[in-house]
Design a protein around this nucleic acid. Structure first.
Ligand code: NAD
Ligand code: NAD
Lengths: 207, 207
DNA sequence: TGGTGATTGCGCTCACATTCACAGACAACA
DNA sequence: TGTTGTCTGTGAATGTGAGCGCAATCACCA
């Protein structure tokens, strides 16, 4: 492991590579060349080699990258090997879908708790967790939960973010289409689905 | 409207500005300066000015940007003023949430049709549309639908994408965590929620 | 009508990211 | 063990966007 400064864009692509590597590994493959992985993922081979080169020597010339160690390395770099736990706030339409979503497990995530404000939902079981009362959300660090997922209506987003920060959350995945302010130490990633859709027409052919 | 090549990153940010502008307009404001808009959205003022400068003269020195014409302009650039129609394929956990999601309307989108393969779902009504049989999905262009939203299981994603392309779709929003191949004229935007979450731990403080 | 304060539009520079080309490393095999 | 073909790792070139500073511009008001 070298100590270069790793470009953000590279970090953004690492999960893509990880997914591809896991996919191929499950199919029984041992190794993969940058060219074949690139074809599979729709990127360029030299991009992959450059990205991997920031972290040290993963590959063997003439053969490619050994999948098992590649997966282990990327997991380590992204700190996914620790088995991150997340808390979901807001078990509505989207929150329920997220609780039923198996895709988080692939990266070692577990939604270990869920909270809502709706009395009718509190106490119910959804996808392996019991929905708790948001008013009783206290210290989460004690339970080993460092990630928060926000799926509440727009107008309560900031309030929920504050609650999560107080509870010791260090990273937030926000689905609400609103800018939230948090201490600088907390990393926020916002997914605004409508906004992503909104830039599609710009790129579409006119006719 | 000048003819510069507009940076992709600028296009990506335009919906953010649009949302902010609409938000302020609804509060009764007439104009906004780059500094105030920047504060609201958590970006830098010069970023906003630079972005807007690609498209011509939106603003008035000493005052700022006139909200109404700003909104109209961005809508025009992103081609949202046409009132884009979209088709949803896969009405499962995520698909149902999307149908119930009011956020698309803000950008002038309408989910005008939904399709599934599950006989128990076909014919049912969800969020204003009747779920159709995917086997009967034919020409969509005739109905004025140019956008496709894919929310089906991973292994059928490519197949559904092909169907949509055949039906005349020009842009796809894909929620399935798999790389799909389409003709170059079709623009694909993939939202992989788990992948976005996966790069959070890298940026989180260690302790 | 001319001065004032605020804010835009844009050129310039630097930092970062992508792309390419190729030397050198390795496996495979005769 | 020598030869061949493949693939990696990386330095250098090219492309792209962010950050900034300031002249030009406008509303406002005396
Ligand atoms: N539905 C979608 O497909 C979709 C897509 C993208 C983004 N979003 C965004 O995700 C958010 C949730 O969407 P939804 O469709 O699930 O809405 P929803 O109304 O179905 O669910 C919201 C849930 O949050 C709970 N809630 C409200 N205030 C709360 C609080 N202070 N603390 C804890 N829980 C609280 C409500 O009880 C409800 O269960 C919204 O901001 C929406 O814009 C939704
Ligand atoms: N649930 C989530 O929160 C979530 C989050 C991110 C991504 N995703 C992805 O979105 C996709 C759907 O997730 P989900 O949770 O809604 O799954 P789901 O199983 O609940 O729903 C899938 C739906 O697609 C339908 N379907 C299957 N094959 C089809 C076909 N060929 N044509 C039309 N319809 C078909 C099924 O009948 C079902 O209704 C998956 O790829 C998943 O990885 C889901």
């Amino acid at each position: 492991m070298r100590y270069h400064k790793i470009p953000d864009e590279t970090v953004r692509r690492l999960p893509v590579y990880l997914r591809g590597a896991m996919h191929l590994s499950q199919q029984g493959l041992e190794s993969i060349s940058s060219r074949h992985l690139a074809d599979l993922l729709g990127v360029k081979p030299w991009q992959i080699r450059k990205d991997f080169s920031y972290f040290g020597d993963f590959g063997t010339p003439g053969v490619g990258y050994h999948l098992e160690s590649l997966i282990k390395q990327i997991n380590k770099i992204l700190r996914l090997d620790a088995g991150q736990k997340a808390v979901l706030v807001g078990v509505g339409n989207l929150g329920s879908a997220l609780l039923a979503f198996p895709g988080f497990g692939m990266y070692g995530f577990e939604i270990a708790a869920a909270f809502d404000v709706d009395k009718r939902k509190i106490g119910r079981r959804r996808g392996g967790v019991v929905i708790g009362d948001i008013a009783k959300l206290r210290n989460l660090r004690r339970r080993g939960i460092c990630l928060g997922i926000i799926a509440v209506p727009e107008d309560t987003t900031q309030e929920v973010a504050d609650t999560l920060v107080d509870a010791g959350i260090k990273g937030i995945l926000n689905f609400s289409p609103r800018y939230i302010t948090v201490p600088k130490r907390v990393k926020v990633i916002t997914i605004d689905i409508a906004m992503d859709l909104a830039r599609l027409p710009y790129y579409m052919p006119l006719s």
